[in-house]
């Protein structure tokens, strides 16, 4: 890897890892379903940054952009459907706190 690419690679990959850590922390620490979904979003941001960075370093930006566009489409559908599921949970339980979701038991 050339020195120029190295200068780009390390800060960006560190940022992607930190985004991943923040997303994991948010998913683990919260009991709110919407917050957990936002945590998953932050995890996906880290993955997006890492994929694009890999394409930039290897010179395959076309391929990685195609992958990221597919990723974004899937991400949007997941968020919409998960939002709908959360609303259904709220309608049935009057809460989106995972500790209060008792109706899922056996």
């Amino acid at each position: 890897m050339s020195p120029d690419l190295t200068q780009v690679f390390w800060p960006f990959s560190a940022a992607a890892i930190l985004l991943f850590v923040m997303g994991t922390y948010y998913v683990l620490v919260t009991f709110n379903l919407i917050r957990a979904l936002i945590g998953v979003e932050i995890l996906i941001k880290g993955a997006t940054l890492l994929i694009i960075l890999a394409g930039y370093v290897t010179g395959n930006t076309g391929l990685t952009q195609a992958l990221v566009i597919t990723l974004i489409v899937i991400e949007v559908v997941i968020m919409v459907v998960a939002g709908g599921v959360i609303l259904c949970v709220y309608r049935n339980n009057k809460s989106i706190d995972v500790r209060e979701l008792r109706s899922l038991k056996g």
């Binding site: 780009v8 960006f12 919407i34 979904l37 936002i38 979003e41 941001k45 997006t48 694009i52 960075l53 394409g55 930039y56 930006t61 990685t64 952009q65 990221v68 566009i69 974004i72 991400e75 949007v76 968020m79 919409v80 939002g83 959360i86 609303l87 709220y90 989106i96």
Partner: peptide
């Protein structure tokens, strides 16, 4: 990082549409 198409998708969909979905869900709870 030389990825303008991915940037446009990220800006329009992830910075535009997904927060709207979240705000809608939050406002209904």
């Amino acid at each position: 990082l030389d990825s303008p198409m991915a940037a446009v998708f990220e800006l329009s969909v992830c910075a535009g549409l997904i927060p709207v979905i979240f705000v809608t869900t939050i406002s209904l709870t």
